[in-house]
Lab assay of single mutants.
Amino acid sequence: MEVRTIKVFTTVDNINLHTQVVDMSMTYGQQFGPTYLDGADVTKIKPHNSHEGKTFYVLPNDDTLRVEAFEYYHTTDPSFLGRYMSALNHTKKWKYPQVNGLTSIKWADNNCYLATALLTLQQIELKFNPPALQDAYYRARAGEAANFCALILAYCNKTVGELGDVRETMSYLFQHANLDSCKRVLNVVCKTCGQQQTTLKGVEAVMYMGTLSYEQFKKGVQIPCTCGKQATKYLVQQESPFVMMSAPPAQYELKHGTFTCASEYTGNYQCGHYKHITSKETLYCIDGALLTKSSEYKGPITDVFYKENSYTTTIK
């Protein structure tokens, strides 16, 4: 009895394709271990004539594949690729409408935090270190965002349907971005203890939790000093293409032309909904596939993004 075979390709990165001759009487799992086709788990399936010449994702289970996976995804987590594939199996079914010149995501599976993050990423200057993220990001900007969303979920250790947080998501993504040249110098002034300067680099240099107003941050924000008295913390120097200011959701007025974009969060910790506000020729609110415009805006804002380049204080 002759062994019926077909020729397929296996890959971990969709760049390096490895030619395989597979036995049609055995499952993919018996031949390769966990195997995925377009995100779908085909591990328990036997090869079919229609699979001839198709590319299958496999887990990096030998040295060659491990090197290829690390170079593309910059992670050695053995569960990463499987999590990416199972997320992709959902995100490829989502709709990605162009809204006001940006790629958004039609609401499904509690994905409003991903839509808000995706919209924000198209408006701030950011370059990702893992080629996987950078490639998928370019495709997302062009309207094909399924891979990018699935990668975000995998890097953030999230599953489809789980509630997510924009600030946490951005923080994970910033860790995989090139923020080497970003720098922030802060000064804390206390009447009792004097003053202390701190220099922050990388992710810490672009994120701040405690106030939404970048102007206020430049002037000074009140913080408790270690001595128990009130101290003032203010920005001395900022070198970065953008800054992200966050605070627990509270009524906040966004003035046209003073910011790049913002995240609105309605609801409580267990259950809520994100919308995205962007400042173009007027203010726009993007909620999944829905767009509304207004000249002014007041609502429960939790993150505001500002364009920056270089700032030095005039406070002496």
Rank of each mutant, 00 (worst) to 15 (best):
V243C: 05
I286K: 00
T260E: 10
K191C: 12
T278C: 13
T266V: 10
Y57C: 09
T43A: 14
N268S: 13
V67H: 14
Q197G: 05
K316L: 15
P97S: 09
E239N: 09
I277C: 00
G161F: 02
L179F: 07
K201D: 07
K201V: 12
Y137P: 03
D77V: 04
V188N: 05
A177V: 08
K280P: 00
A205E: 00
L290T: 15
G299F: 02
Y84D: 04
T198S: 12
H276Y: 07
A177W: 01
T313Q: 15
F259V: 02
Y73G: 03
T11Y: 06
Y311W: 10
Q196M: 12
L121K: 04
A142F: 11
S181L: 09
S310H: 15
P78C: 10
T313V: 12
E125T: 08
G210D: 00
L283Y: 02
V221H: 09
T75N: 12
V22T: 10
S79Q: 15
T43K: 10
A108C: 13
C227P: 00
A262H: 00
Y113A: 05
S104L: 07
L118C: 02
Y274S: 01
S310I: 12
L291W: 15
P131R: 07
A247N: 06
A69W: 06
V99I: 15
F70S: 07
Y72T: 07
T232R: 09
L283Q: 01
F242H: 01
C261P: 00
R4D: 13
E125G: 12
F305Y: 06
I152W: 03
K218F: 03
A145C: 09
L59F: 12
T211R: 05
T116P: 05
M24C: 15
V21H: 12
F56Q: 05
T226A: 14
V8K: 04
E2N: 12
N129R: 15
K127N: 11
S279Y: 01
A150Q: 05
L173E: 00
G272Y: 01
T43E: 13
H90P: 04
P34D: 10
D41W: 05
Q195E: 15
A154F: 02
P34F: 10
A247S: 08
D135M: 09
P97Y: 07
H48F: 12
D165L: 03
V21N: 12
V12K: 07
T91Y: 02
G143Q: 04
L283A: 00
G267C: 08
L179M: 07
N61T: 14
G82S: 15
L133I: 04
I6G: 06
E281W: 00
S213W: 01
S246A: 02
I301A: 00
K183I: 10
A150V: 02
K229W: 09
E215K: 07
T75W: 04
L212W: 02
L118I: 09
G82T: 13
G299D: 04
N61R: 13
T43F: 10
A289Q: 10
I301C: 01
S79Y: 09
Q251Y: 12
I105E: 02
Y36F: 11
K280L: 14
E296I: 11
E215P: 03
T192I: 11
Q251P: 12
E2F: 10
G194C: 04
V304L: 04
T260H: 07
E2Y: 09
F148N: 02
G220W: 01
A145L: 03
T27S: 09
L88P: 05
T11L: 05
Y36T: 05
E281Y: 00
T11V: 05
D287I: 04
G257P: 00
T232I: 15
M207S: 06
G220V: 01
S171T: 13
L88G: 03
S25T: 14
G220I: 01
I6C: 12
Y113F: 08
Q30S: 14
T5Y: 12
P130I: 05
Y113R: 07
Y297N: 03
L59Y: 13
K255N: 08
L254D: 01
K280G: 13
L290K: 14
V243Y: 02
G101W: 05
P248I: 06
T226I: 12
S263G: 00
W107N: 05
E71G: 06
L17N: 09
Q31A: 14
L283K: 00
K93A: 10
Q134V: 09
V3L: 13
K293Q: 15
T292Q: 11
Y84Q: 01
E204F: 06
P249Q: 01
D13Y: 03
I6E: 04
T313S: 14
K280Y: 08
T278R: 07
A205H: 03
T278P: 00
P60N: 07
L102N: 04
S279K: 01
Q134N: 10
C193Q: 03
P47G: 08
L235G: 01
N89E: 15
V22E: 03
L114W: 03
E168L: 09
K183R: 13
A150W: 00
Y57A: 07
L200W: 05
T226S: 15
R167F: 02
G29H: 08
F9Y: 12
V189N: 13
E239G: 02
H256K: 14
T169K: 01
Q175Y: 08
I277G: 02
R83I: 06
A108M: 07
G101C: 04
I301M: 03
A117K: 02
K293M: 11
F70H: 08
F32W: 08
T232V: 14
Y28T: 05
T278N: 06
Y72I: 06
Q216I: 07
R4E: 12
P249V: 12
A205W: 01
C112T: 03
S263T: 12
A205T: 04
Y84E: 01
T19V: 11
K44E: 15
K93H: 15
L200S: 10
A247E: 01
T211Y: 04
S79N: 10
M24P: 13
L186S: 09
V188I: 10
S310E: 11
N111E: 04
Q20K: 14
Q216E: 12
Q134Y: 05
K233W: 08
Y208R: 02
T292V: 10
A69E: 07
E168H: 14
L163V: 13
P300Q: 11
V12H: 07
Y57S: 07
A136E: 14
L119N: 02
E308W: 04
L114I: 11
T35V: 12
K106D: 15
D135Y: 08
M244I: 03
Y73S: 04
E308M: 12
K93S: 11
Q134L: 06
N157L: 03
F217K: 02
L163I: 00
L118D: 02
K46W: 14
M209D: 08
F174W: 05
M26R: 11
Y172L: 13
N14D: 10
N49E: 13
C112V: 02
K307I: 10
A146K: 06
P47K: 05
K7H: 15
